[in-house]
Design a binder for these strands. Structure first.
Lengths: 372, 372
DNA sequence: TTGAAAGCGGTACCAC
DNA sequence: GTGGTACCGCTTTCAA
């Protein structure tokens, strides 16, 4: 039971516990951390210490411990700027659980715009940043974003940049310099001095277009979300679509590609559908099942027949793709399991000397249904 | 420019910077924190310090600073166990940005199952936890979950429990005892010694059922997701539905309520639709637009007419609700803005003495379309 | 079996 | 204008 007069006084320290138990701080540390190395503490003493700690509601101070230990067991992962898709969220969550099982404390921290560096006294409120008269706020004129400084200050064991976050080589250098044992980027395969888990969204575009070409389509529209936050995914998917035709996966057939900006609103979809005949397309890859469903509906309302007039394929294989008529074909994305990822991180933390490597973290396949 | 021979050596400390700049650690601290109180440092010295810090890639150690300062500017927020909905994600993200603007470092940490306490040496790997022979792992027989201990160890300025996370009174006590200035629960209005932002999902159920009753429906089915992770939202929504009829919002009309378990799969929906006639319902509130779309489709495939035979209403007003035929009515949920929330947190941190209060963080309204 | 003491990296008070 | 220096809370030798 925690002491009733809770809130007020300052948090109990190990010294408080020691005093209450009538022992030294060292003994408290031994008992509470309970490693085999300190098995030589009398049962009675241990009981007294535990009782005192409980009574006081003692919780060790992570910062003090980390400071003393020199290394933390914290894994920092970037939090997505935008509401991410469900499969993506699942991956992040799985990874988090698996890492905790390995003894790491996982924290998702925003990788967003500048602001502050977490300094107790100095807030990021506009107007405060200019007052140090030096050569600029805090150095880092070389492109290192402020967020990464905040990360480095936390001295994590590992730092994981999930898309759409990107790390510059300078970011990686800074983190490593700060003792981060594993710096990992997940996403596009650009190396940067960091280890990486490739999750190349281009493959999604390639697979979609390859499928359409296989089905005999030659004039392919590619929906590009107007929503800015999706760029990090959308651009590579479009690029992959282009790459597919460049490599001539259609057996040398000459395929025409048309990017189609589309916002996630009915109006936008209706507008696109209205000018559809003029576009002269016989297929469309819609970035995502969500966009695909929206477009499909608008096309049908405009009298365009799917798949007769135009083949439609989405991606991510969401439930929504199975609920339309016709049922939507989709590029299914299979992520590496969170457990695998966690093991990878752990391995890297243990042997930080290892040369940066790349691993595939994603495989794609086409689920063909009735819309193509 | 950061030093090329990056990775190897241990991270530079302020002492390293001092040595390189030929000054004392105190001076380094003054220059780098650049408060007006230290305006009496010569311009030349400041330049030398900055240059040294840059050259070394120096980043202050957050733990050391927090230790010294006694208080951190960290806000801990629970990360959802399950992929949360988009509006919810938006709220979380907005809050995060706004808090950063106020000078806080926000970290989302999992509030999941037990495991470890982040202790450097001791992992949570099965088999390691039993070896301290005491009265149990680390005390806490009173229900305080392990996660909260991990939170408390980090000595955050504020702790925010987002649904579906719940905090017990013991959790709250522990956190406050650890110096957390603001402990806030967002979600169901149970107070617990903590401040709270009520976001009562029951209102969603009430609004939906009230709408259906108003439309003259009397035998109402309520879809309850079979997915376990959604309980925290689903249960209160169902409860709210019941409450609506109990309070007789239908003007004393006697309304029958039937819970309908449904998994987010076509099979499950088809099965439910198959036994629909036997259920004798004239309306259904489907938890969510996602479930509503799924059910709507299955009902239509089974020959049930919407809204003639049965009125269907969803919730969350997702885009999907506007893409079905008929278009789906939905309970729209309006969250408090992230900025408001951030301001609330900040206020609480500044005046931790304040008595626990409740605030509404959500308002609901029905968007009537063609399905009811 | 237990205690004393030296730091981990930063900050800030008080001298010089 | 700058440099000592005493902490913050915890871990971990080394003695006793």
């Amino acid at each position: 039971m925690t002491d009733p007069r809770s809130a007020s006084a300052s948090p109990p320290t190990s010294a408080d516990v020691a005093r209450r138990a009538g022992v030294s701080r060292a003994t408290v540390s031994y008992v509470l951390n309970g490693a085999e190395s300190s098995a030589r503490i009398s049962e009675a003493t241990r009981a007294r210490v535990h009782a005192a700690a409980d009574a006081l509601g003692y919780v060790p101070h992570a910062a003090a411990r980390a400071l003393r230990a020199g290394a933390s067991r914290m894994v920092l992962m970037s939090a997505p700027h935008v509401p991410a898709g469900p499969l993506y969220a699942r991956f992040a969550h799985e990874a988090q659980s698996a890492l905790r099982l390995l003894g790491y404390t996982v924290a998702h921290v925003a990788a967003g715009a500048a602001g502050d560096t977490g300094i107790p006294g100095v807030t990021g409120i506009p107007g405060v940043t200019g007052d140090d008269g030096g050569t600029g706020a805090s150095g880092n004129e070389d492109g290192t974003s402020v967020d990464v400084r905040a990360w480095a200050e936390l001295r994590p064991a590992a730092a994981v940049a999930l898309p759409p976050t990107v790390l510059t080589p300078a970011d990686v250098t800074l983190l490593k310099r700060a003792g981060t044992r594993a710096v990992i980027t997940v996403g596009p395969p650009r190396v940067a001095g960091a280890h990486s888990l490739t999750m190349d969204q281009r493959e999604v575009g390639s697979a979609a277009v390859a499928h359409l070409v296989e089905r005999g389509r030659r004039r392919v529209g590619v929906v590009v979300p107007a929503e800015p936050g999706l760029d990090a995914f959308a651009r590579p998917r479009l690029a992959g679509a282009h790459a597919a035709v460049a490599e001539g996966s259609g057996g040398g057939a000459d395929v025409r590609m048309t990017p189609l900006p589309l916002a996630l609103t009915e109006e936008s979809a209706a507008a696109l559908a209205a000018r559809w005949p003029a576009l002269g397309l016989d297929a469309v890859f819609a970035y995502n099942d969500e966009y695909a469903v929206l477009l499909l509906r608008a096309l049908q309302d405009a009298g365009v027949r799917v798949p007769e007039d135009v083949a439609v394929i989405g991606a991510d294989d969401l439930l929504a793709a199975r609920l339309t008529r016709p049922r939507l074909s989709s590029v299914r994305v299979e992520h590496a399991s969170g457990a695998d990822f966690a093991a990878y991180v752990d391995e890297l933390v243990r042997s930080p000397g290892a040369r940066p490597r790349r691993r595939r973290a994603m495989t794609v396949s086409v689920t063909a249904r009735d819309s193509t």
